[in-house]
Design a protein around this nucleic acid. Structure first.
Lengths: 141, 141
DNA sequence: CTAACTGTAACTATACTTGTTACAGATATG
DNA sequence: CATATCTGTAACAAGTATAGTTACAGTTAG
């Protein structure tokens, strides 16, 4: 299990929170739906909390709720919050600087990487948590 | 070193091959520029060969060359050839089917994944190996 | 005060990428 | 034809990221 599924989990979690309105939801409850451990969920909620997407309460009858309305949360924000990293990685080791191609390829790839990330961000920005929920609802029918 | 840098390496390798025109290039030579082991390069060339982007010759004075002109090779093809996988992964374990959200979220995320991959493919499709080379050349100046 | 939560550290398991060695098979060249 | 020079590929080690799990400190409602 090495593939990064944090974004998928995050969307799932936030959709559940949206479903529960203003009620605090416990990490155990979310974990049951996502089918994983509560600590994994709390780790994820920590990242979403830092991104100001959710707020949590400690203590008895504590839990987590959305910090904003679903239509004010874009999928792009979620993606950035869990920092899934880049679509592709640059060279692990620097290429040979003695080679005319190796010397310059990194800069070109770096620019390309930025463009791709931007394209992904823009595509994700077309959707909000609210639109995800409405898709979940219509699928149910 | 777990991040997938195969796409970066592939573009680098193909740019080198383009630089060498119709001459066979040895894996050792490419490996020196990419700063890695020749076997790693041969593995990569194997994938690029299956995608019909390069042709290789075994035996003495063998090596690899481009199968097509650089302007006929889009970055999207390269991306697909090295199968970098998806931008984000779906759930590792299936969500709980007892939860109204969990039951339907997978399909929604799957569609989203396809859309993102399509957006990435389209963006990459705007570039060819030739355009990468021209960027490398101008950076050199 | 106590029970019920979150937050977080620490450790393990798993899996993926890369690096490396080794060797079989193909082929140009003398 | 013999040989040196390549590719193709298997097999294994090493490094690293994600995820699962246990444990426990800190917070808060009742």
């Amino acid at each position: 299990m090495a593939a990064n599924s944090q974004f998928s989990m995050a969307v799932h979690v936030l959709a559940m929170l949206a479903h529960s309105g203003d009620d605090n939801v416990k990490s155990e409850c979310i974990a049951a739906s996502v089918n994983t451990n509560a600590v994994v969920i709390r780790r994820l909620l920590g990242q979403l909390g830092q991104a100001k997407l959710v707020t949590s309460q400690t203590g008895a009858s504590g839990g987590t709720r959305l910090a904003r309305a679903p239509h004010e949360i874009s999928l792009c924000e979620i993606y950035k919050a869990v920092s899934c990293g880049e679509v592709f990685a640059l060279h692990a080791k620097s290429p040979s600087q003695d080679c005319p191609v190796g010397r310059n390829i990194e800069a070109v790839l770096c620019n390309l990487q930025k463009e791709i990330d931007k394209a992904v961000g823009e595509k994700l920005g077309q959707y909000t948590l609210a639109s995800v929920i409405s898709q979940v609802e219509t699928a149910k029918a």
